[in-house]
Design a protein around this nucleic acid. Structure first.
Lengths: 253, 253
DNA sequence: GCAAAAGTGTTCATCGTACACCCATGG
DNA sequence: CCATGGGTGTACGATGAACACTTTTGC
């Protein structure tokens, strides 16, 4: 690569960035709690189909900046500070009819307590869709494949890291934490006992990364409200750990 | 992204592909068993520095094809059929002085029984370097970062998948298999007992994915030769599994 | 007081680890 | 026959899973 001298190279492709933005919201149906942001396309080529928000990368712009700009211009969301990670690059020569467009897909996560504003001023109609309901729907370009890869990535990362806290509000209860795992990995996790759940996070409690606030959540219907916890970003080295639950993902069937 | 009508889009970047090719060879020093392919640069800008093999992507070429072409033209290797996987895309606007060059890094693995030929006809001087000895050395561009990411990827994938068999010859012994894990993950794994090693691979033996050949390896010095095994690619669903060993990678210190 | 949901403690099975012993080869 | 390395079986300890029981809320 990069052979030859220091002469400028001739651009040979169009670089775009697409974002798969997930959130987890409360829902009676746990299957609909995990949601992804889609925008309605207005091109002739993909009329009626939905797609992920994305933009072309500017000359001096980083991918990270481009991804956040995509969320801003396409859905009116201010993604500054949100969890954002590169997912993979999609490059089939024929994936776009307008030339060799290479798209770098990203995964973003949004905290549920930061309200989702999709102002009318936005260029496109953006809306949340339950992840599991989008499977089977045909998205524009190869965005089905991007979504599939993003689902895999988030599910696996949820198992071997503490990613779940990226989705929870500042303070939360253990049942809320459990609901995140249930929504993304397997609905049957809802039946996990508090005792066993707590044992899983025992190392975090011991290390001081997860601290009890000392208050109860405000009540929501019947039953005892849960104790509130706060997650303090831990030292870098302790960030990742293996989680026990290894159920097959129920998304793919 | 993809906005506007069906008019051709103006190329805005140069797309390149770089390959991190690993192999594991026998060695008295287990630290030198895991090796990576580097090529000597001859540019003025990076004189003396080594880099990963790479090429610019052609108009109608897939990344996969470009990556294999890089190995072919830069090191004379015929990578057809080798394990190859996309690693990530490196895109800092200033990573190359010749313009906005975006490089998609790939990881490739080579079986030890396919002899490594680096014919003199190759355009560049290619050579194998022990992975752990390259840390600290400065490579051209951001290839240090690429190598680092590749090391992480292979180490982690070795733990949760059966990637090791991609590096072993057609038939192999359990001690050879153990050596692969020791070379890539942690040298102390060399002391793992055969009994425990076998227990780890018990599911593979039970499912018929790993079959005893029924012969012994030809002898190599003192001691009893090991039983030979053959790995038959399993059905897709059973491909991944969690491995127990979770030592911290000894590479980073 | 009763139902519903959260939290606590204990028991049991599973599995990774350690270790003691047997087998096959070269010198 | 002895040193070296591969292979087999067993015993122990850590840990994830299940369950019985207590606590706190709304009706």
């Amino acid at each position: 690569m990069h052979s030859g001298d220091a002469q400028p190279l001739q651009p040979n492709a169009v670089i775009a960035v697409d974002v798969v933005l997930f959130k987890v919201r409360h829902s009676e149906h746990i299957d609909e709690a995990w949601q992804v942001l889609l925008v309605q396309r207005e091109d002739a080529a993909f009329a009626g189909k939905r797609s992920l928000p994305g933009v072309l990368v500017r000359a001096e712009e980083t991918f990270d900046a481009a991804a956040r700009r995509a969320l801003h211009t396409k859905a009116g969301l201010d993604a500054a500070g949100w969890y954002l990670e590169q997912l993979g690059t999609f490059s089939a020569p024929d994936r776009d009819t307008r030339g060799r467009v290479v798209s770098v897909a990203h995964v973003a996560l949004q905290r549920t307590d930061e309200l989702t504003l999709v102002p009318g001023g936005g260029i496109m109609r953006a809306e949340w869709a339950p992840v599991r309901s989008v499977f089977g729907e045909e998205l524009a370009f190869d965005h089905d494949a991007m979504l599939g890869a993003a689902v895999q990535r988030v599910q696996s990362k949820l198992r071997y890291s503490w990613l779940a806290f990226q989705v929870l509000p500042e303070t939360f209860t253990l049942p809320q934490l459990r609901a995140v795992y249930a929504a993304i990995l397997d609905a049957s996790l809802l039946r996990l006992n508090t005792s066993n759940l707590k044992k899983t996070f025992a190392p975090l409690l011991a290390s001081g990364a997860l601290v009890p606030v000392g208050e109860r959540a405000s009540t929501t219907g019947a039953g005892r409200p849960g104790d509130l916890y706060r997650f303090q970003g831990p030292v870098a080295g302790t960030w990742e750990r293996e989680l026990p639950w290894q159920e097959g993902s129920s998304v793919n069937e």
